[in-house]
């Protein structure tokens, strides 16, 4: 039930954004976040619940850095 997917905001009208998710365009409520066009966002049950501030590649870099910190290889 907690499934959420990420996508990119294409446009915004009132409290609704059009979000492109893997080639599909869906409408999502933006009442829980502040978003602007081109933001990458996380959508759950028709609502944007978080704005993503990094690309997938940057995100992965962060994870590796966290791992290195844990194992003391930094």
């Amino acid at each position: 039930m907690c499934v959420a997917v990420s996508g990119k905001v294409l446009n915004i009208e009132n409290d609704t954004a059009t979000v492109e998710i893997m080639g599909n365009k869906i409408k999502a409520n933006i009442g829980l976040v502040h978003v602007i066009v081109n933001d990458r966002v996380l959508v759950h049950a028709g609502c944007v619940i978080q704005v993503l501030d990094k690309t997938d590649a940057e995100d992965l870099d962060d994870i590796w850095n966290e791992l290195l910190e844990i194992t003391g290889e930094n």
Partner: peptide, 11 residues
């Protein structure tokens, strides 16, 4: 639901 969905109900 859990807290993931909870704010949507608040909305």
């Amino acid at each position: 639901g859990f807290e993931t969905t909870l704010p949507i109900y608040a909305l």
